[in-house]
Design a protein around this nucleic acid. Sequence first.
DNA 1: TCTTACATTAGAATGCTTATAATTTAGTTT
DNA 2: AAACTAAATTATAAGCATTCTAATGTAAGA
Lengths: 147, 147
Amino acid sequence: MTVPEQRLQEALTTLKESGVRITPQRHAVLEYLMQSMKHPTADEIYKALEDKFPNMSVATVYNNLRVFLDIGLVRELTYGDSSSRFDCNTSDHYHIICDECGKIVDFHYPSLNEVEQLAEQVTGFDVSNHRLEVYGTCENCQQMAKH
Amino acid sequence: MTVPEQRLQEALTTLKESGVRITPQRHAVLEYLMQSMKHPTADEIYKALEDKFPNMSVATVYNNLRVFLDIGLVRELTYGDSSSRFDCNTSDHYHIICDECGKIVDFHYPSLNEVEQLAEQVTGFDVSNHRLEVYGTCENCQQMAKH
DNA sequence: TCTTACATTAGAATGCTTATAATTTAGTTT
DNA sequence: AAACTAAATTATAAGCATTCTAATGTAAGA
Ligand SMILES: [Mn+2]
Ligand SMILES: [Mn+2]
Ligand SMILES: [Zn+2]
Ligand SMILES: [Zn+2]
């Protein structure tokens, strides 16, 4: 069994344990998320499944994403100007985003505890977490720029 | 002359040098931004000025914020679920945000160059910048929680 | 004072997301 | 296997922040 398939099975088990029904649409959204490496938007998921489910409502995609978020199966990535993206990799990792094409790539870095501690001291906040994104130009877009 | 007044004068000079006309509405939006410490939204600016300018359009606020952004007089802060916030402090600094009340507070920390360098090595991106926000509970909301 | 390119205005339009209400169905109970 | 029912899906409307449009107004130079 491939890694995405295994993650899908685990996710289905988690859903059942939470008393959530497994519908064909829900299964398809989950399957697409698990197999996708590209942090898709709700609309990308909707469009990717419209051949298989021509009558599926976009609300169903949103409803299911909400269910998955609440159970902790996916993470929501929010940026300013456009729509949310969804990440089925819930392990601790950061993202680097291409300014040109919008591609989002995972990268790992030891968590920035010193920053959280300093922020706590300086501001008096009780710190819970942080977000960090790095921006730049991906290798593809660097190549494109050369020609 | 206070610091906000001085920043306002400098900003007006920058605008004039860029060939941008100084209208009463533009002046008021800029003045409000410079004197505000709270990273206001477009709507907050609009509402704060509606006594002085009862006929001002919300589009005027957005138009002017766009002009200020293009010239580099303000920074736009974007978060997932709600509207953009605007920061007239364009110097290098980070933000810490209260999960309870949404308050945004500045804090300074040496720029995270090692993170940018590692991301560059690992992903092959040509890195340009990064964003970092810390989240937690502000002192006020900590007090409230105790009672 | 005259002129005009730029700015403002009201309102319509857009794009993403959520709400509503009717219909269908997954999973349990008989 | 059939019936039941709470949950899920659907189509559509609504909400909200932001941008667009086209008519009107005005800042600043000539
Ligand atoms: Mn990821
Ligand atoms: Mn700030
Ligand atoms: Zn790229
Ligand atoms: Zn607070």
